[in-house]
Every structure is written in structure tokens, then in C-alpha cells.
């Protein structure tokens, strides 16, 4: 029997047959999820019914245009998530067990990145009220989330806040739960993944970093002295939809209806063929949009403006919650 390790992710416990150095350890707690990297030369021969695929916008780091980045399939009552030419993850029907078969030339660091940053959020999307593709930081008012597509600056903005007294909750994935009459945000795990230009501009030049995955030059920073982090849940006070634009930073509040239609695009969803789940997710996002202010933040992609952007966000929060705090 191989050794098992236990880790915390999104305030849940994951047991694994490989070391996951990105995650904090969890001792003496029964795991809700298990992960197994299968050491086998052959990929499994399951019958898979493919139903969806993700394509990444052209990115010279990931690969060719028009090639699927991730394929979704129904398999053995559960799901198959295939990253072509890299790894295949099989999720059990009760969503508690994840197994991975990996191509021989796929480094373990890449397998871990795919597990933590793609597969786990998708699995959690079926078991948690909402899992959002967002970064988050903790302010004096509570948690705020930055929502946007890849490359819009979610991680950079969150890291910038963390370096200025507002601990980071997440750089890419927030789990939203309803607790004690309000929506709360919980990070999946500590750390941030940044391009080297952002590392230089926002963090120390000599900050110790680790490889994120073999196909990307983004670096992972786990040091809480450099990027302070908080792992406990916090009340969600605002969501900011990031939009790159020229000129001064500007913030505009969305009506709940428009906020719902915008936010739903950033919710992880493992199975788009499940209409009942989609209806439930729609209701959840509508509820969040009705209870939590959603703003559109327009700002220029320039490191020099990060300070004014932070100030604009904090000013907006003060104006929104001036009577409450």
C-alpha cells in the first residue's frame, strides 16, 4: 500500500498518493476527496461519451490555435477530463475520487497544476453552491473578488493588493457558499501564479518562485511573507468585473440582471449537459447578483496605475458600505 498524504483545499481535505507541495497539509481529518496518480504505461480504455471541449485563445505557450485544451466526457457514471497529449483525469460518479493517467513526458508539476487549477475547481462546481473563476483579497469590509478572462489581470491586481496590506484569498478560483445569512468567499489554496514582468513590478525581484507547469512561463509564489494570504472564509462584499481600457480607472455598478448574465460566464461548470444543474446555478448566480454589489472596473494594463486602481476600488467600497461599517 502506498503512502497517502492529506491536504487542505477550499477548507476541504484531499488525500493524495503524491506530494502536493502547493497545498497546506491537513492532519487527522477525514478526507472528502482522494487523488491518485496512476503509474501505468497505458491510458485506461474506458468508454467515453464526449460532450464538450474548451479551446484556449491562441497562446504561443500552450499550443496551436483551434486545438482543444480540455475535453469533457461522461465515463463510468462519472466524468473524464482529458488534456490532450498531457493527462487524463477520471472523476468517480460520486465526485469523491479522482484518478489521473499521465503521458510519460508530462512532468509531475504539470499534473499537479492541472489537478489543482482545472480539475478540482470543476469537481467542486458540482458539490459547492458556486465556484467562480476569480481572484480575491480581504479588505476591511470583507472579501472582494476580481472576475475576468485569462489575461485580464486578476492575479496581478490581487497580488498588488496583497503587497499593500490586503491579504490574498485566491489568485484564480473562489468557492462561494451561503453562511449565516450572507454569501462568503473561500480560497482554494494559497499562492499566486504570475508572469515574470509582474513578479518584477509587483513583488521582489528575488522572490523565490517555482515552476507552474512545463508549458507556461508563469511562476508560482507560495511565500506568505511576500504575498500574505488568508485561508479562512470571509463575507463577500463586492465583485469587480475586469475590463481593460485606456484612461483613468472607472467603476460602474451593474444592475442585478446584467450582473447575473455576466457572472454566469465565469462560473465553473463540469457538466453543461445537465439542465437541472444549470437551472440551479442560474438561481445561485441570480441570488448573489441580487445580494452582493457587482461593478465593472475599467482600467489600463499598466503597472504604474495599480496604486490608483486600488484606491478607486477602496473608495468605491467605502461609498457602498459607509453606513454599514
Amino acid at each position: 500500500m502506498s503512502k497517502r498524504y492529506r491536504y487542505r483545499i477550499a477548507n476541504l481535505v484531499l488525500s493524495s498518493n503524491i506530494v502536493l507541495p502547493e497545498l497546506p497539509q491537513a492532519n487527522g481529518t477525514q478526507p472528502q476527496y482522494s487523488f491518485e496518480l496512476v503509474t501505468s504505461a497505458d491510458f485506461p480504455n474506458h468508454r467515453i461519451e464526449w460532450f464538450h471541449q474548451w479551446y484556449v485563445p491562441f497562446d504561443d505557450e500552450i499550443g496551436e490555435e483551434d486545438q482543444p485544451w480540455l475535453q469533457f466526457g461522461h465515463c463510468c457514471g462519472g466524468y473524464c477530463l482529458r488534456f490532450p497529449a498531457m493527462s487524463e483525469f477520471i472523476v468517480s460518479h460520486d465526485l469523491s475520487r479522482i484518478q489521473c493517467w499521465s503521458a510519460p513526458d508530462t512532468p509531475k508539476v504539470t499534473v499537479r497544476h492541472l489537478l489543482l487549477d482545472q480539475v478540482i475547481p470543476l469537481v467542486l462546481s458540482r458539490t459547492e453552491p458556486l465556484v467562480l473563476h476569480a481572484s480575491g483579497v480581504l479588505t476591511e469590509f470583507g472579501a472582494i473578488a476580481f472576475v475576468g478572462r485569462t489575461g485580464e489581470g486578476k492575479s496581478t491586481l490581487a497580488a498588488s493588493f496583497a503587497r499593500n496590506g490586503f491579504p490574498m484569498m485566491s489568485d484564480d478560483c473562489l468557492v462561494l457558499r451561503f453562511d449565516r445569512q450572507c454569501w462568503t468567499a473561500t480560497a482554494t489554496y494559497p499562492g499566486v501564479r504570475l508572469w515574470s514582468s509582474t513578479l518584477d513590478a509587483v513583488l521582489h525581484r528575488d522572490a523565490r518562485t517555482r515552476q507552474t507547469a512545463h508549458y507556461t512561463r508563469k511562476r508560482r509564489v507560495n511565500n506568505s511573507e511576500i504575498v500574505p494570504h488568508i485561508s479562512s472564509p470571509a463575507a463577500l462584499r463586492a465583485l469587480f468585473l475586469l475590463c481593460c481600457s485606456e484612461g483613468e480607472p472607472s467603476i460602474m455598478r451593474h444592475r442585478p440582471a446584467l450582473a447575473t448574465m455576466t457572472l454566469i460566464a465565469y462560473a465553473f461548470n463540469l457538466d453543461i449537459t445537465d439542465s437541472a444543474f444549470l437551472r440551479q446555478q442560474f438561481e445561485t448566480v441570480s441570488d448573489i447578483a441580487a445580494k452582493v454589489p457587482v461593478f465593472e472596473l475599467h482600467y489600463p494594463r499598466d503597472f504604474a496605475t495599480l496604486g490608483p486602481v486600488r484606491q478607486a476600488i477602496l473608495k468605491q467600497l467605502k461609498e457602498t458600505y459607509s453606513d454599514s461599517f
Binding site: R255, P256, A257, L258, T260, M261, I264, I272, S275, L278, R279, F282, E283, S286, A289, A290
Partner: peptide, 25 residues
């Protein structure tokens, strides 16, 4: 039946669960 309807303030959103199309009113 395959359309979900949600009223938010004075507006309404409809979602076709089969096509994934949203429509705001």
C-alpha cells in the same frame, strides 16, 4: 419548461437551459 425565469428588481432574465441562451427583459 426548459426556460428558467428569474425576476431581479424591475428586470427579468430568461435562460434557455437547452441552448444556454440568456435574454434580459
Amino acid at each position: 419548461d426548459e426556460v428558467a425565469v428569474r425576476r431581479l428588481g424591475s428586470e427579468t432574465i430568461l435562460l434557455n437551459l437547452v441552448t444556454g441562451t440568456y435574454f434580459g427583459l
